[in-house]
Write a protein that binds this DNA or RNA. Structure first.
Lengths: 121, 121
DNA sequence: AAAGTATATAAGCATATTCTTATATACTTA
DNA sequence: TAAGTATATAAGAATATGCTTATATACTTT
C-alpha cells in the first residue's frame, strides 16, 4: 500500500485552501498571469485598478488577498507600493501542489483500467 | 524579454479558475487528499457524507462540483456511483499549473535582489 | 407491488465574497 | 500650509457559495 502521512495531508490542505481560494478568482488569476507572462514585472494598486477595470479599493482588496496568501508581497518604491511575486513562499506553494498532484496521479496509476468507464445517468 | 503567449494565459486562466475554485474548499480538498493518500480509492456520495460529517445532498453537491471541474469522474459499480480521479483531465490540470508556476518562478529569477525587501506599513 | 437504498435536484436560508461609496492615513508637491 | 496622489479601511449592497429540508428518480430487495 502507498504510504502517505495523513497528518501532513491535513495540514497542507488548510494551507492549500487559502492558496486555491486566492487564485480561484478571475481578476486575481489574470493579474498573476500578467505578472508571470513578463508583461509587467510589478503592479501597484493604481495599476491593477486601471488594467483590470476595477475601482481603487477593489484592487487594494484583491492585492491584500494575494499578499495574505503569500503569492505576492509588497515593496515600497518611490511613491508607489509595488506588489511582486513572493518567490520563497511560491516555491513552497509549488512544492505542496506537486506533493498533492504527485500522490494523486500516482494513485490514478493504481486503479484498474476496467473500472474506468464513465457513468452518465 | 521572456516571450509568453498572452492568449494562452487568458484561456488557461479561465480553465484554472474553475479548478482552483473547486479545490478552494476545505471539505472538497480534504476529500481529494483522502483519495490521493490511498486511504480510499473511490468515494460514493454516502461515503463522503459519512466521512466528512455532511448531509447526503451536501456531499452530492460537492462531488458534482469536483466532477464538473474534471477532478473526479463518476462510475457506477453495483448499487453505488463511485467518484474517482479523472486521470486524463488531472494530467492536463497539472500541465496548466506547471505552466503558470513555471512562468511565475522564472519571472522571480529575473527580478533584481535589491528590490526584494518587504514593505510593511 | 411495496419498501428500502443511493443519488440528484429544487428551494430557501445563512454565510462568504466582491463590489461600491465614503473616508482615513501617509506622503509629496505646489 | 494646502492640494494632490497613493493606498487602506469601514460599512453596506449585490452576488455567490454552502448548507438545510423536502422531494424526485432509479434501482434493488422483500
Amino acid at each position: 500500500m502507498l504510504k502517505v502521512n495523513t497528518q501532513r495531508c491535513s495540514n497542507i490542505s488548510e494551507e492549500l485552501e487559502e492558496l486555491f481560494k486566492a487564485l480561484g478568482n478571475i481578476n486575481r488569476l489574470l493579474l498573476v498571469y500578467r505578472l508571470a507572462s513578463g508583461e509587467m514585472e510589478k503592479v501597484s494598486v493604481t495599476d491593477m485598478a486601471r488594467i483590470m477595470g476595477l475601482t481603487q479599493p477593489a484592487a487594494s482588496q484583491h492585492l491584500k488577498i494575494l499578499k495574505t496568501a503569500k503569492i505576492l508581497h509588497a515593496q515600497k518604491q518611490g511613491n508607489y507600493i509595488y506588489y511582486t511575486f513572493n518567490e520563497s513562499a511560491l516555491v513552497e506553494h509549488k512544492e505542496k501542489i506537486d506533493f498533492l498532484f504527485g500522490c494523486l496521479l500516482l494513485k490514478c496509476e493504481r486503479i484498474e483500467p476496467r473500472h474506468r468507464e464513465e457513468y452518465k445517468r
